[in-house]
Design a protein around this nucleic acid. Sequence first.
DNA 1: AATGTACGCAACCGCGTCATA
DNA 2: ATATGACGCGGTTGCGTACAT
Length: 242
Amino acid sequence: MVRAPFYDKNGVKKGAWSRDEDTRLSDYIQKHGHSNWRQLPKLAGLLRCGKSCRLRWLNYLKPNLKHGNYTSEEEEIIIKLHYQLGNKWSLIAEKLPGRTDHEIKNYWHSYLKTCSKSKNYKETISELKSKPCDTVEENDTQHFVPPENPISDEGKGFHYILESSTITISRETSVEDNSSPASINCPVMEEDNVAPWLVFESFSGDFWTDPCTLDDTSTTNEISSEDIDFLIQNFYDGSYMF
DNA sequence: AATGTACGCAACCGCGTCATA
DNA sequence: ATATGACGCGGTTGCGTACAT
């Protein structure tokens, strides 16, 4: 299930941890703490890098960690927080005692696979496709689900990201910058891999997150409350989730 | 029973952020 | 103000197991 142990060219061990290594690491940290991860493996008598030790401790050896089955409450919290925060796994983990960002991230990726295959998901995608975003250039036309509470970008508009792509909705009515045109940028979405909602974040400018900016704009800032209700209803009615 | 495929867990990697010299 | 090192986070990958054919 895990990578087979091996040594890199510097003699640093990689791959699965043995029981003996776990014991050494736990014993050392419980006695001395972990004030310096870089020095820790040397001091603990491990042939690992500090990064690897840190990961092992935080995700598996640290006391009071929960592993395995998620309760329905935990699932609900994860879904809601992901909806609000995006892929901020560490922030989500803060709200789930005993769970780590790493585990939650894994859970979410599994969850995405499940929900992307669900009948309801596909029906919703189909519905979305019947509501094209008509200002987008051909080939770039895709559809999105606006979060219930999009984050305002200092009055300039709102940002949405579909996993690795960005949607920007600017408002002509912006107080600070009412000269900028309203625009919507609809990214390509791989519907089998990505949940069609979420994740707000400022535009970072690289290939994957570059929005396809549009000049024309008269229709772009009009996402009706009915649309939002429709989308949220379809994604949060619970019938497809678990 | 053998083989192929999908899933899930655990580890690694790259990069951003922060502290310090 | 800048350079450097350490840490932390998020994304990706490897591989064992479970399930399907």
